[in-house]
Design a protein around this nucleic acid. Structure first.
Length: 268
DNA sequence: AGATATTCCTGGAGGC
DNA sequence: TGCCTCCAGGAATATC
């Protein structure tokens, strides 16, 4: 499922075909994803030139010369298909460029979203206004400041986009494992030294996944369409009952309705 | 206000 | 083989 590394990879893939191109045609193949499609999406996008592609947290941003930014979230099964040979089931939006390329937003489970936001108003846009800092820039000190006084388990706090924006279940589990921190530990009770380790672990695990092209479970495809073109082996995620490198066994618990995978010998 | 539960949706997995 | 139930995920919303 797409997390920050997959979104980063997707944005870089889309950049290859969309940057500086004019969007010649927009086809909406259904009226909604998770929510209704933005008002006037087709008209506002048709004829616009793409001036930049960016990522914020788990959102991809497509800036245009009309001062509009198309903001997409891939949910858990979304992907952009680049130059698909044919339209497939669950291709919900098609964008055709002036030089003959096509990108298709495919999302079987429709947990994703599309929004068109005035570029100058992005920071105040409700979904963005409360977002915490980017995990790739996070420091131990900043983590400490944001976890101060919080009694909830560190696992749940790291998934809270207001505290740190862009981590999902997979990378939270992996980062906590690397940092040797038990997922049930109260966020506010972790020492600065261990939070420094955690900040480093978060940055490292994301950088490695981005370098590898975004990890994949069942339903992520790169923008070029090759399914499962990257396979990363997780240390703990989805490895319940299997051996940790310490020869102990990876455990699974449920926190806030989400599975947490960890090694109780390596994580304290 | 902080913590937790519920909702959305589909396809894949596993049970019988 | 087919039908059934369960589960995965992020974010918005509701409720304690």
């Amino acid at each position: 499922m797409p997390e920050l590394p997959e979104v980063e990879t997707t944005v870089r893939g889309l950049e290859r075909v969309l940057l500086d191109r004019r969007i010649e045609r927009v086809e909406l193949r259904r009226p909604d994803l998770r929510r209704a499609m933005p008002e006037g999406l087709g008209q506002r996008l048709t004829g616009a030139r793409v001036t930049g592609l960016r990522r914020r947290a788990k959102y991809g941003l497509i800036d245009t010369d009309r001062e509009d930014t198309l903001v997409f979230h891939l949910g858990m099964s979304g992907r952009w298909r680049v130059d698909p040979s044919e339209v497939e089931k669950h291709d919900h939006v098609l964008l055709d460029t002036d030089d003959g390329h096509r990108v298709a937003l495919n999302d079987p489970r429709r947990f994703g979203s599309l929004d068109l936001v005035r570029t100058s108003e992005l920071d105040a846009w409700p979904a963005f206004a409360a977002l915490g800092p980017e995990p790739l820039d996070i420091s131990g000190r900043e983590l400490r400041a944001r976890l101060q006084g919080r009694s909830a388990p560190i696992k749940a706090l790291l998934l809270d986009q207001r505290i740190i924006a862009g981590l999902g279940n997979i990378y939270v589990c992996e980062a906590l494992y690397r940092a040797g921190i038990h997922p049930t530990r109260a966020g506010g009770s972790i020492s600065l030294a261990r939070l420094e380790r955690l900040a480093t672990a978060i940055r490292e695990v994301l950088v490695e996944a981005i370098a590898a092209g975004g990890s994949t479970l069942r339903d992520f495809a790169s923008p070029a369409g090759e399914l499962g073109y990257f396979s990363k082996t997780f240390a703990v995620y989805d490895r319940e009952g299997r051996a940790c490198t310490c020869r102990s066994t990876v455990e699974r618990i449920v926190q806030g309705g989400r599975s947490t995978f960890f090694c109780s010998r390596c994580q304290r």
